[in-house]
């Protein structure tokens, strides 16, 4: 009976969504193109143009770190609060590594250290080129965190220096807010781009956006590394 009611609720949700779709698109009064939507202004530049209104070649980056940067500040705050909650629930004063029932041999330990560097550099590359290519601070930070995960998995006594991650995270978050306040002083409003935008497609372009994305990458990487450390330890009873 309970399952039948759940099935009915799920079917009702599906029927409601399909009824709200007209001609297989949700907002078909705008037509298929972005012409006429709000998004039309976001892509208003050309490759190689000098000092456009918004610098990055990747339009998604220009929305995440420029037009809606305040949203992103709130979003990394949400991630910070959730990592704080995990630390509150799983952390303790005396901790030891969770026993995975698996002891890596010598070759695995040494080889994983070589692989760690490659994954870390991939994460840094993706973070720094976030305004030119797909990627950016969020996947780059997650790649940095997964390189830490590799070290944890390949050595059953390894513990990262979590205190360093906490300091890095606080510094990155504070610098983000400070850059925003600098926008308040040098330009008109909070988090406004106050540097020269450069040429679209160059590495050193787009003003403060690469700075902000590197800070986001550091913050996300250290937060997720902290979460992984909390999940791989247990309290000594």
């Amino acid at each position: 009976m309970k399952n039948f009611l759940a099935l009915l609720a799920a079917l009702g949700l599906g029927v409601l969504i399909i009824l709200s779709l007209q001609n297989n698109t949700l907002f078909n009064e705008y037509g298929e193109d972005v012409t006429g939507r709000d998004s039309e202004e976001y892509g208003d530049r050309e490759y190689g143009e000098e000092n456009p209104a918004s610098g990055p070649a990747n339009i998604v980056t220009s929305i995440v770190a420029d037009f809606r940067s305040f949203d992103t500040l709130g979003e990394i705050t949400v991630l910070f609060v959730s990592s704080l909650g995990v630390a509150l629930l799983l952390g303790g004063t005396k901790q030891k590594r969770l026993d995975l029932g698996f002891h890596p041999n010598f070759m695995l330990r040494i080889g994983s250290k070589a692989l760690f560097g490659i994954i870390l550099m991939t994460g840094v590359y993706v973070t720094i080129h976030g305004h030119l290519t797909p990627g950016g601070g969020f996947p780059g930070g997650a790649m940095i965190a997964s390189s830490m995960l590799l070290l944890y998995l390949a050595d059953d006594t390894f513990r990262a220096k979590i205190k360093g991650f906490k300091i890095l995270e606080s510094v990155a978050g504070s610098l983000y807010v400070l850059i925003g306040i600098a926008g308040l002083f040098f330009a008109d409003y909070f988090l406004e781009n106050f540097l020269n935008n450069g040429v679209v497609g160059d590495l050193l372009s787009a003003g403060i956006i690469p700075l902000i994305y590197v800070l986001i990458g550091l913050k996300v990487g250290s937060e997720i590394s902290g979460v992984i450390d909390n999940f791989l330890t247990e309290e000594v009873v």
Partner: peptide, 28 residues
Amino acid sequence: PDVAVTEAVIGSGLVTSLFVFTLLATKK
């Protein structure tokens, strides 16, 4: 492509490892 890179790293890498660690911790 941006969403695809993010989902490939986070959705199928990190979230799966967190689930597996939770299952390992709750078995003993």
